[in-house]
């Protein structure tokens, strides 16, 4: 069985229910977006997949192998986590060297090349890295590790716009040269939306949406025009957000639409995933 199968995972931290009966599947060679607000349970799920935490209930299989306490299964997965688990006193160069020992397919040359591109000083100790360079250091390993499944937990934390752009480009390049499963956990959707093939949204420990990005984007649309026209058009429709600027309005609407029914003067665009996400994950 290919892919990562998550079956009825429940995890509690004291009184907090972090994950509640979550079941999903990550298929091989796809880019997934694991979306959710802070504390939704995204990191907990990734930590359970990678054997860092144990679930209270349920099980996970990686290519048919039980993930818990299984070196063979874990050899197929790499998690770039928000929390640094490498020894603080080690230099980036040393970590790269050890990564090659642990992961035989780790491409040391490529890691050095990436570090150079990002401007990461590999002789620096991990504890001296800024938040942004700490993310870069982990991104470099994640992109060089060459496991079939690479999990990114908040990969762009602290990165400036240039470095974020570089990361997206490198990820796409890497993926197109040698496809693998990338799971990107984030709450910053706008930037990653264009890369994703599938979207999973978690809210309060439960899986809310598990759709292909294409299907999700087709589930709604945005229209812009004068306030008067928009007000008339949205009557009776499921509106998830309205932005007004001067006399102009933009409404995000859920549901199918026939382009021919759009009145003249209104401009229709695709669904804004960020707005859709906010609507879905709003506590109200």
């Amino acid at each position: 069985m290919n892919g990562i199968e998550v079956n009825n995972i429940t995890k509690r931290f004291g009184d907090t229910l972090a994950l509640n009966q979550v079941s999903l599947k990550f298929e091989p060679n796809k880019i997934y977006g694991l979306l959710g607000r802070n504390g939704a349970g995204k990191s907990t799920l990734l930590n359970i997949i990678t054997n860092r935490l144990f679930p209270d209930e349920g099980d996970i299989k990686i290519e048919g192998l039980a993930s818990a306490e299984n070196d063979e299964a874990q050899n197929k997965v790499y998690l770039m986590s928000e929390k640094n688990l490498y020894p603080d006193s080690m230099s980036c160069r040393e970590v790269f060297k050890w990564s090659r020992m642990f992961y035989p397919n780790f491409d040391l040359e490529y890691a050095m090349e990436l570090a150079k591109q990002f401007g990461l000083d590999i002789n620096k100790k991990i504890k001296t890295l800024s938040t942004g360079f700490s993310s870069i250091f982990k991104i470099v390993i994640a992109l060089s590790v060459n496991t079939p499944y690479v999990l990114f937990d908040e990969p762009i934390l602290g990165l400036d716009a240039n470095h974020r752009e570089m990361f997206y480009k490198l990820l796409i390049k890497k993926y197109s040269l040698s496809p693998f499963t990338a799971i990107i956990s984030t709450h910053l959707i706008e930037e990653v939306a264009m890369m994703l093939e599938n979207v999973m949204i978690i809210k309060n420990g439960e899986l809310l949406i598990n759709e292909s990005c294409e299907t999700l984007l087709k589930s709604g649309y945005s229209v812009s025009g004068t306030a008067k026209q928009i007000d008339a058009f949205i009557m009776g429709k499921e509106v998830i957000s309205i932005d007004a600027l001067g006399g102009l309005k933009t409404a995000t609407i859920i549901g199918a639409v026939d382009k021919n029914t759009i009145p003249l003067g209104l401009e229709m665009t695709g669904l804004d995933l960020q707005k859709f996400f906010i609507k879905l994950t709003n506590e109200e």
Binding site: T50, E69, D71, V77, S81, Y86, S99, F102, Y103
Partner: peptide
Amino acid sequence: MSLQNGIS
């Protein structure tokens, strides 16, 4: 370090 590198 073990958990980061897939060691049980």
